[in-house]
Amino acid sequence: MSLDKATVRSIAELARIEVPEEALDHLAGELSNILTFVEQLAAVDTEGVQPMTSVTAMTLPLRADDVTAGGHADKVLANAPEAMEGFFTVPKVVE
Protein backbone atom coordinates (compact mmCIF):
# COMPACT_ATOMS: atom_id res chain seq x y z
CA MET A 1 0.00 0.00 0.00
CA SER A 2 1.36 3.41 -0.83
CA LEU A 3 0.45 6.68 0.85
CA ASP A 4 0.39 9.98 -0.98
CA LYS A 5 1.76 13.24 0.34
CA ALA A 6 -1.66 14.67 1.20
CA THR A 7 -2.53 11.67 3.38
CA VAL A 8 0.76 11.95 5.24
CA ARG A 9 0.15 15.66 5.79
CA SER A 10 -3.27 14.92 7.20
CA ILE A 11 -1.96 12.13 9.49
CA ALA A 12 0.71 14.51 10.81
CA GLU A 13 -1.88 17.13 11.52
CA LEU A 14 -4.14 14.66 13.35
CA ALA A 15 -1.15 13.60 15.48
CA ARG A 16 -0.18 17.26 16.04
CA ILE A 17 3.29 16.63 14.66
CA GLU A 18 4.81 19.45 12.66
CA VAL A 19 6.29 18.01 9.45
CA PRO A 20 8.09 20.37 7.03
CA GLU A 21 6.75 20.20 3.47
CA GLU A 22 10.09 18.91 2.09
CA ALA A 23 10.05 15.95 4.51
CA LEU A 24 6.65 14.68 3.35
CA ASP A 25 7.85 12.71 0.31
CA HIS A 26 10.45 10.84 2.28
CA LEU A 27 7.96 10.10 5.10
CA ALA A 28 5.37 8.88 2.60
CA GLY A 29 7.93 6.39 1.33
CA GLU A 30 8.84 5.17 4.82
CA LEU A 31 5.23 4.81 5.95
CA SER A 32 4.33 3.00 2.74
CA ASN A 33 7.14 0.50 3.35
CA ILE A 34 5.87 -0.15 6.89
CA LEU A 35 2.34 -0.70 5.63
CA THR A 36 3.56 -3.04 2.91
CA PHE A 37 5.49 -5.02 5.51
CA VAL A 38 2.45 -5.37 7.77
CA GLU A 39 0.22 -6.23 4.83
CA GLN A 40 1.93 -9.62 4.60
CA LEU A 41 -0.41 -10.63 7.44
CA ALA A 42 -3.29 -10.38 5.00
CA ALA A 43 -1.98 -13.51 3.28
CA VAL A 44 -3.23 -15.60 6.23
CA ASP A 45 -6.76 -16.90 5.80
CA THR A 46 -8.68 -15.70 8.88
CA GLU A 47 -12.15 -16.61 7.60
CA GLY A 48 -14.34 -17.52 10.59
CA VAL A 49 -11.58 -16.84 13.16
CA GLN A 50 -12.53 -14.59 16.08
CA PRO A 51 -10.05 -11.78 16.74
CA MET A 52 -7.74 -12.79 19.57
CA THR A 53 -7.84 -10.26 22.37
CA SER A 54 -5.73 -12.11 24.91
CA VAL A 55 -3.24 -14.97 24.89
CA THR A 56 -4.86 -16.49 27.98
CA ALA A 57 -8.61 -17.06 28.40
CA MET A 58 -9.20 -13.99 30.52
CA THR A 59 -12.28 -11.80 30.81
CA LEU A 60 -12.38 -8.17 31.81
CA PRO A 61 -12.05 -7.82 35.60
CA LEU A 62 -14.71 -5.63 37.25
CA ARG A 63 -14.05 -3.24 40.12
CA ALA A 64 -16.38 -2.35 43.05
CA ASP A 65 -17.97 1.10 42.92
CA ASP A 66 -15.88 2.50 45.77
CA VAL A 67 -14.03 5.79 45.99
CA THR A 68 -10.39 4.80 46.41
CA ALA A 69 -8.50 7.62 44.70
CA GLY A 70 -8.42 11.40 44.42
CA GLY A 71 -8.02 14.09 47.05
CA HIS A 72 -4.54 15.02 45.86
CA ALA A 73 -4.86 17.95 43.46
CA ASP A 74 -1.27 18.91 44.33
CA LYS A 75 0.10 15.61 43.00
CA VAL A 76 -2.10 15.76 39.90
CA LEU A 77 -0.81 19.25 39.14
CA ALA A 78 2.79 18.60 40.17
CA ASN A 79 4.08 18.09 36.60
CA ALA A 80 1.83 20.63 34.93
CA PRO A 81 3.78 23.20 32.89
CA GLU A 82 1.32 25.79 34.23
CA ALA A 83 -1.29 25.82 36.97
CA MET A 84 -3.32 28.41 38.85
CA GLU A 85 -5.71 28.13 41.77
CA GLY A 86 -5.88 24.36 41.52
CA PHE A 87 -6.53 24.36 37.76
CA PHE A 88 -4.30 23.39 34.86
CA THR A 89 -3.92 26.46 32.68
CA VAL A 90 -3.41 26.45 28.92
CA PRO A 91 -3.47 29.11 26.19
CA LYS A 92 -7.09 30.12 25.71
CA VAL A 93 -9.00 27.55 23.64
CA VAL A 94 -12.44 28.92 22.98
CA GLU A 95 -14.80 29.05 20.05
Binding site: A69, G70, H72, V76, L77, G86, F88
Partner: peptide, 18 residues
Protein backbone atom coordinates in the same frame (compact mmCIF):
# COMPACT_ATOMS: atom_id res chain seq x y z
CA UNK B 1 -10.85 4.71 38.20
CA UNK B 2 -11.62 4.99 41.90
CA UNK B 3 -11.98 8.79 41.97
CA UNK B 4 -15.29 10.29 43.15
CA UNK B 5 -17.94 11.68 40.82
CA UNK B 6 -19.72 14.24 43.04
CA UNK B 7 -20.61 17.55 41.37
CA UNK B 8 -19.12 20.85 42.50
CA UNK B 9 -15.96 19.65 44.30
CA UNK B 10 -12.74 21.69 44.48
CA UNK B 11 -10.91 21.66 41.11
CA UNK B 12 -8.82 18.55 40.41
CA UNK B 13 -9.65 17.09 43.85
CA UNK B 14 -11.46 14.10 42.34
CA UNK B 15 -8.80 13.02 39.91
CA UNK B 16 -6.85 9.76 39.96
CA UNK B 17 -3.69 9.31 37.94
CA UNK B 18 -5.72 7.28 35.45
Amino acid sequence: SGAATAFGAEPNSQVSFV
